[in-house]
Design a protein around this nucleic acid. Structure first.
Lengths: 142, 142
DNA sequence: CTATATGCAAATAGTTTGCCTGTTA
DNA sequence: TAACAGGCAAACTATTTGCATATAG
């Protein structure tokens, strides 16, 4: 896939539109903040982050924007035990590793493994989404 | 494995003790309620259920008991998006299927599949727990 | 008897809602 | 300009905490 085909190279408004999301400045800012730092912030963290670009945005709007983005498959929501929902703009199928120190890492998941998981279910199950979460201790690299 | 070896056949207090949990009547009642109906209740649902046996129990105590049971690996906590934590006394490695109607089903997961998932991670990752959640539509069987 | 668990009520965290105003197509 | 989105404050739900009393080893 060519660089010019990646989601990042298109104007944000166009990307939102293509996914059925009416582009507003808040939605663009929220989405942009997830694309830039490709990490896994909570709604609160997104809020803190976007206040610089959009000082008048409210937390409720951040929640709404994230919701719309999740609903329209531009963003994934990730849930760990005893932790607020985190958001992730990585659309490639992948698992999450939740470090004991609180870090969240993307773990690549080849199609073969996903197929094997789906095969655990009888064929009359209609699977919309598969979520794989690891929990443990990751080596420090900083 | 013989029937007499299953967890259910031992006095509850003994099982708790063996797992390092000081047996109190509340802990026994909470754990028993999970063993009897092998489903996936929330803390609130456990509370409602155990009030019959233990009318003076408090919701905070139910949370505490569930916590202790989870901490000591007698019970698993299951988290789905936008849903309160559910609890599960099935200790065999398994995934969960979260039906759009709200039902939660246990899905058997053979060791081979679990090993494959663990192999997605570099060997210097220390994996404590792997969680696999399916979401979608299950066929009705009632 | 000493440590630990319970029960209650109040506190907190995360998220959602209602309502009025502003913005988009 | 009609439909939809944002901002703010208040509501709500799930969960945790503090503290006095009760219970287990």
């Amino acid at each position: 896939m060519a660089e010019s085909d990646t989601i990042d190279s298109k104007p944000l408004a166009k990307v939102l539109n293509e996914h059925g999301v009416r582009p507003t400045s808040q939605r663009e800012t929220v989405y942009e903040s997830l694309l830039q730092k490709r990490d896994h912030p909570t709604a609160d963290e997104v809020f803190a982050r976007v206040r610089e670009k959009a000082p008048t945005i409210s937390l409720a709007t951040v929640y709404n924007c994230l919701d719309v983005l999740v609903q329209n498959k531009l963003v994934r929501a990730v849930n760990f035990e005893r932790a607020p929902t985190q958001y992730c703009a990585n659309l490639a199928p992948h698992a999450h590793f939740h470090d004991e120190a609180g870090r969240t890492l993307d773990i690549e998941m080849p199609t073969g493994v996903i197929d094997q998981l789906r095969d655990l279910l009888p064929s009359d199950f209609d699977v919309k989404h598969i979520e794989v979460n690891f929990h443990g201790r990751a080596p420090h690299n900083d």
